[in-house]
């Protein structure tokens, strides 16, 4: 995943000083991944755009609370995740954290998942069908390659819970892809 690597350090100190060009660079770097994350959680284009905008505005307002400049990305996704949760609670009253996740453990290892063109729609459907907590963990893992600790911080969950969520999500994904491979028709 070469797109994830940042060759230049993020201009967070300049943004702290109120430099609009620094803010522009920061937002340009994260706007699409953030939108993907938000859209896949709320499944509504205009709501996603609103939430991204709210996230940006909150970031400008609360940058002072960010302690480590290197963690700007996970901090920004944390704000977006909170906004999605608020929206989710307002809309459906389904609590993000109350889906039972007990068995199963995330096993760290090489992530060689590749999706063929004919599997793309199935993959997207599967992502959409996952329960929100698993979906959020999977998206953060795939879209920005956040570490388990970072995902736990963003989603305000325990590390074990995040491992379990990712385990379930990836198992479901592999099942889907294997089933497609067995029955290509």
């Amino acid at each position: 995943m070469p797109e994830v690597a940042d060759p230049e350090p993020l201009p967070v100190p300049l943004a702290r000083a109120g430099d609009p060009a620094a803010w522009d660079a920061l937002f340009r770097r994260y706007q699409l991944p953030l939108y993907v994350f938000v859209f896949e959680l709320v499944r509504d284009e205009s709501a996603s755009l609103d939430l991204v905008q709210e996230t940006f505005l909150a970031a400008v307002k609360h940058l002072g609370t960010l302690r480590d400049n290197a963690k700007f990305g996970s901090w920004l996704f944390g704000i977006a995740h909170q906004k999605c949760r608020q929206r989710w609670r307002q809309r459906t009253e389904v609590l993000f954290d109350e889906i039972p996740e007990s068995a199963g453990e995330w096993e760290p290892g090489p992530d060689d998942l590749l999706i063929r063109r004919e599997e793309e729609a199935g993959f997207m459907n599967l992502v959409a069908q996952l329960p929100p907590p698993q979906r959020a963990a999977l998206l953060l893992h795939y879209v920005e390659e956040f570490s388990l600790e970072e995902i736990a911080r963003i989603t305000e969950a325990q590390l074990g819970t995040v491992k379990s969520r990712l385990h379930y999500a990836k198992r479901a994904l592999r099942k889907l892809l294997e089933a497609k491979n067995e029955n290509p028709a």
Binding site: W23, R28, V52, F56, R116, F123
Partner: peptide, 30 residues
């Protein structure tokens, strides 16, 4: 063959003009 990240980003690439406008708006407001 695409990685999940490539697939997810490609799916939403069409939203980029809107995101650019939104970003400019936020930066101008700031």
């Amino acid at each position: 063959m695409k990685t999940p990240r490539e697939l997810l980003l490609a799916r939403h690439r069409a939203a980029e003009p809107k995101l650019d406008a939104l970003r400019r708006e936020v930066v101008a407001a700031e």
